[in-house]
Design a binder for these strands. Structure first.
Lengths: 141, 141
DNA sequence: TATTGTTATACTCTATAACTATA
DNA sequence: TATAGTTATAGAGTATAACAATA
């Protein structure tokens, strides 16, 4: 289906563009793309394991170790042993981490609002349907 | 708009997943994500400049130099000075490069077909509308 | 035995700035 | 002066494999 093509290529292109735009909007925080992605996902204040954060962000574990080291070094989060499973950590944002995450979410939301203005809820729902279908196709593989 | 949220986060997540799936499907070629992305865009056999390829893929120039060095080293493409503007190169796939690019396009198309099966053309069109809106919002910034 | 997370290694990606050649 | 592309540098992302601790 060449005519349908571009679904994946435009996905990658758009990712590059949004990462660059967010990095620029958040330049004062000096965060990398993976750090921004992690903070945006942690912004809901819910604790989760490293593995879960990897699933949420799409980031592999070896990358997350470094990302979490830096965020922890900034005092943005804590790693606490999970009493229920002492192999894993519960990641929790500190106050400073919540503030940074709120900034990240604000910029993400601003970019989304700017982009989605003029589009319908149905179009956004279709977008999510395609994204979900892509993920499932990858998982099947 | 928390309810609309996830547009950008799921974009990044899906990008990670598709890159990993394509890398696995094309493991025998030993290509990196950026190389896959470049080949997929060059697969239409049309020559273009380094700058244009950067626009097409979303890859910055400093990354492209290395990517093109490796693709050229494999004998996949040639860099020829553009007679019309001798500051720039025209990138053209060789026969081997076209074969590799065809493999890449085949895997990309297979993943897309697998994902889009069950979705309507309208949903895919809406997906592209959201992607385009995101890009334009980034450019405005 | 399997899983969570880290570490080690090697290579690639990226931003930034400076540079050459051309326009 | 401005643009196309490269180079240099330093830091970050990634795959792979191995590892310790826990399940």
């Amino acid at each position: 289906m060449i005519s349908d093509s571009g679904v994946i290529l435009s996905l990658h292109r758009a990712t590059h563009h949004t990462l660059r735009a967010l990095g620029a909007a958040l330049a004062d925080l000096g965060l990398t793309s993976a750090e921004i992605n992690a903070l945006a996902n942690l912004a809901d204040r819910r604790s989760r394991s490293v593995k879960q954060l990897g699933v949420d962000t799409g980031t592999p574990p070896t990358t997350l170790t470094g990302v979490l080291d830096r965020l922890q070094g900034r005092g943005y989060l804590t790693r606490e042993l999970d009493p229920a499973d002492r192999r894993s950590f519960r990641l929790t944002l500190t106050g400073a981490g919540q503030a940074a995450a709120a900034r990240v979410r604000h910029e993400v939301a601003a970019l989304e609002e700017s982009a989605l203005r003029g589009l319908t809820a149905g179009q956004v729902a279709s977008y999510h349907a395609v994204i979900t279908a892509l993920q499932e196709a990858c998982d099947e593989h």
